[in-house]
Design a protein around this nucleic acid. Structure first.
Lengths: 220, 220
DNA sequence: GGCAAACTTGCGCAATGGGCAACTTAGGTG
DNA sequence: CACCTAAGTTGCCCATTGCGCAAGTTTGCC
């Protein structure tokens, strides 16, 4: 029915759910319980995506999404705090990927190098999202409350990234924070451009271009 | 009762309300009607601020704010779409100031120069916010939904600023957008730092410092 | 004075988020 | 395997919210 049902989500649901609500509460990684939770979360996400793309954010109720995923409205709340969060599940996953990747870079690398190499190694992940995705994203971008929720993700990411940069020796605090915020702005802006020009240039290339402009300010 | 009732708002409510809901609907600038509207908006804003600082965002209902400002809950909705918007009224006003200022710079100035001069001329406006404000802001910053709504303001600002930079000859689109986003990141980060160190360094100085770091990437 | 536009208010309604308690199920234990 | 416990699901309930609508009320202007 949908050629790319989870085009906007993380390809393979990258584990780590552990406790239907955020709290880490230990659980067998491969257990049935865990797999079911991930499946439910994914189902809710995809249902939300499908319905919202069809009817617009305002035209879809939480109940409708829950129904489409065969769970109760109450259960929806157990997984996501609202429609926005369900829709941005994929973005959150990508955020975790990004953080995991950059954290696993050699500790000796400077912030800028770690950033550059991280983007290089995620090239495939981000570049893989094929055509059609831009069109969908264009629709979703219309919804103000979504952009806003996106902001929450970036804010969190910025905090984490700043900490990572500080750990890599960025000083002073202002510069570390600025570096993190600026890198994320590069990603945001590149993505916006990518959507606008309908994927004409591969996303990773646009990010590279943006980072290249910033290089004179931060490359050590 | 409150030493700085509107510390977070714009000092003098910079006119331009014109139509209780956004839509510009012509109205005498000095008329009683217009003055009442501005007063009501300001009263709602201050009531929101006071109550939220006391009881936390979740601990205050729209109704309580409306009561404190002597209007009905329904009227609150006529002015603001929610608690967050009421709280951020001051930020929106500052955003408009900023845009008005930069737009009125000579058209021949490059984006970077216009930006620098705008910050210089707003130095007093932003620097004037005295001590105590940082403490309040620190409290407000705890509320996730507020940061998120702040993001909405910045997003809008980024769009407008990008357009302004394009008008001033910034190319290509990616660079113009990146420049706008980066400048705003500088402001955001500087403000965060300012709050964190409790106003030790004047905000304008921190913004200058941030912009100085970025200079190598954008100064033409 | 008097009219029209603008604003306020109360009422109603659907949607939402979240607490609570009963029920169901996965996972480990003797 | 029977059994127990913790985790997850669901229905029920309620306070809050955003908004449309249709009176009232006020302001601005001829």
């Amino acid at each position: 029915m949908d050629p790319q049902p989870s085009a906007l989500s993380s390809g393979a649901p990258t584990g780590m759910s552990t406790g239907v609500r955020g709290g880490a509460s230990g659980g067998a990684p491969g257990g049935l319980r865990e797999r079911k939770k991930i499946a439910t979360r994914q189902a809710l996400h995809e249902a939300a995506l499908r319905l919202v793309l069809r009817d617009g954010l305002a035209g879809v109720t939480v109940e409708a999404i829950a129904d489409a995923a065969d769970v109760s409205r109450r259960t929806f709340s157990n997984y996501f705090s609202g429609k926005e969060e369900a829709l941005l599940y994929g973005d959150r996953a990508r955020m975790r990927d990004f953080l995991d990747t950059i954290r696993s870079r050699p500790a000796a690398e400077t912030p800028w190098t770690a950033m550059r190499e991280t983007m290089r190694s995620l090239r495939d992940t981000f570049g893989a999202r094929g055509p059609g995705v831009t069109a969908q994203l264009r629709v979703l971008r219309k919804q103000p409350s979504l952009i806003v929720s996106q902001g929450a993700i970036f804010a969190e990411l910025e905090r984490e990234l700043t900490a990572e940069f500080v750990a890599r020796g960025a000083t002073p605090a202002l510069r570390a924070h600025l570096l993190a915020g600026t890198c994320l702005t590069a990603v945001r802006v590149a993505t916006a451009q990518w959507i606008e020009e309908d994927g004409a240039t591969p996303l990773p290339d646009l990010v590279d271009e943006a980072l290249h402009i910033l290089r004179p300010a931060f490359d050590d």
